[in-house]
């Protein structure tokens, strides 16, 4: 499944880029992330709990950052699997200055498998969009609280 869109955060690209490379910030921004532990260069083991309405599921997986071109772009690969299925997202994030803030455009692919894929087709698109939105909203509030 293709996932593309953009979100604007009210701080400059340098700041946005730096934040999105910081595992502590990522841990606080990725919705449901419970822990992020470094296992290699730009690679982290992640535990997350996804809670969405009645749905709840624990996932274990990895976050990997690659192709870093500060402060304009990098790739983020997120993989997770749990009892209810597995997800893999691989996307390019491009940062451009906009009105004193940054427009972060994302473009990538998501794979979903297991029970979630089999019974959640109707909702995957909407859910993915919401998770991405939450990520950026969290990023924004982390930035605010760090001032």
């Amino acid at each position: 499944m293709k996932i593309a869109g953009s979100y604007t955060v009210p701080f400059p690209p340098e700041r946005a880029y730096e934040m999105m490379q910081d595992p502590d910030v990522l841990a606080r921004s990725i919705p449901g992330c419970e822990s992020l532990e470094k296992i290699g260069e730009n690679e982290y083991r992640m535990k997350m709990k996804m809670v969405l309405a009645s749905l709840s599921g624990a996932f274990e997986g990895k976050v990997r950052l690659a192709d870093q071109k500060p402060p304009s772009s990098f790739r983020m690969v997120v993989e997770g699997s749990g009892k209810i299925g597995f997800v893999k997202g691989d996307g390019l994030l491009t940062l451009t200055p906009k009105d004193g803030g940054t427009e972060v455009a994302y473009d990538g692919d998501a794979q979903v498998g297991g029970t979630m894929a089999a019974v959640g087709q109707r909702l995957i698109d909407a859910t993915a969009k919401m998770m991405i939105k939450r990520f950026f909203e969290n990023l924004r509030s982390v930035e605010v609280s760090s001032r």
Binding site: Q111, V112, G113, G114, T115, A117, A118, V119, Q121, R122
Partner: peptide, 9 residues
């Protein structure tokens, strides 16, 4: 992945 995995789809 069978995405029509239930009678919902």
């Amino acid at each position: 992945q069978l995405v029509t995995g239930e009678l919902m789809d």
